[in-house]
């Protein structure tokens, strides 16, 4: 690989990172897992003047669940940390997605927060976070701020961070009641970009849905926020009628384009099929549990 010339910094604190970003006025890129940035450098799609490697900053590898049930994921938490995590029992959507992100090689190195920042319309984690109502903590010269996941992705490969901010943590709020959900992805091969992916996250009280979240990847120029569409489930129980209504509403929210992975109508059909499958799986396993 022969990227353009860049200078390289390996700071050991978040404050130093912010100072470097601030001094370079948008010409610096943060390197975490490197699974997207390195290929972009290699192909010269990205030619930043500086690369700021945050892997030397201690204390960012964590993911933990707070006593109130909030999940916190640090900037250097790798995909596989989540894939093999023992503490995600209350986060089924995220847990299911974790083994479908890219391929096992990428998962050993790539980071959750880095993937969110990359803002790829086909990214699994953006869809998961939007469905879960998650947030990103950005830190800049003026301190920290929270950005909702649904506001974080502005467009393809564009996120809401200012040039002198770095994403230090992702947060998933605790479910109200029982957390149920699922993640399905159609890909031509492990590691291929998704033809279509569906993330569904529900909070359920008894058998009544109290909150419904959904987002889609691969079926639009950005991650599709289908939270409004799936909110038809709120106040209802899962049955064939409500599942059908939700699946149709979510499919209508997709904005797929025809390409060599399939026609727009095929992709929309896959979204509807996957929403149906996820919700039916939930309904079936809840029935068995009850």
């Amino acid at each position: 690989m022969y990227p353009s010339r860049f200078s390289y910094d390996a700071p050991t604190s978040v404050e130093e990172v912010i100072a470097i970003l601030d001094q370079n006025g948008g010409e610096a890129k943060v390197l975490a897992g490197g699974q997207s940035l390195i290929p972009m450098l290699k192909l010269r799609f990205a030619s930043p003047a500086r690369v700021v490697d945050i892997n030397g900053i201690p204390g960012l590898e964590y993911h933990r669940v707070d006593p109130d049930g909030t999940l916190r994921i640090g900037a250097l938490c790798r995909h596989e940390d989540l894939e093999f995590s023992k503490i995600l029992g209350n986060f089924p959507t995220l847990s299911q997605a974790s083994s479908l992100v890219a391929d096992p090689i990428v998962r050993t190195r790539g980071t959750f927060v880095g993937s969110l920042c990359h803002a790829d319309p086909q990214g699994d984690w953006s869809a998961t976070m939007i469905a879960l109502g998650g947030k990103i903590i950005a830190q800049g010269p003026n301190g920290r701020r929270e950005i909702k996941a649904r506001d974080f992705v502005l467009g393809p490969f564009v996120n809401a961070l200012a040039f002198n901010e770095v994403a230090v943590e992702a947060i998933v709020p605790p479910a109200k009641g029982k957390a149920l959900g699922g993640y399905l992805k159609l890909e031509r091969r492990v590691g291929d970009f998704a033809t279509a992916s569906v993330a569904v996250a529900l909070d359920v009280d008894g058998d009544i849905v109290t909150r419904a979240g959904c987002a889609l990847a691969g079926v639009g120029g950005r991650t599709i926020d289908a939270n409004d569409a799936i909110s038809v489930l709120v106040g209802k129980s899962l049955n064939s009628e409500s599942i059908k209504e939700a699946a149709e509403a979510v499919a209508a929210a997709a904005e797929p384009r025809t390409d060599h992975r399939g026609s727009s109508s095929y992709k929309r059909h896959i979204v509807e099929t996957f929403v149906t499958r996820i919700l039916s799986n939930i309904a079936n396993s809840e029935q068995k549990a009850a």
Binding site: L186, R188, T195, R257, T258, D259, H260, R261, S263, H269
Partner: peptide, 25 residues
Amino acid sequence: LMPNRVYQALQTGQDVSGMPPVLSD
């Protein structure tokens, strides 16, 4: 035999021939 082509054949009962077109609508 990508999934979309097999699905198309199943839905239409028609052959799916040639290279997958590079289309964008």
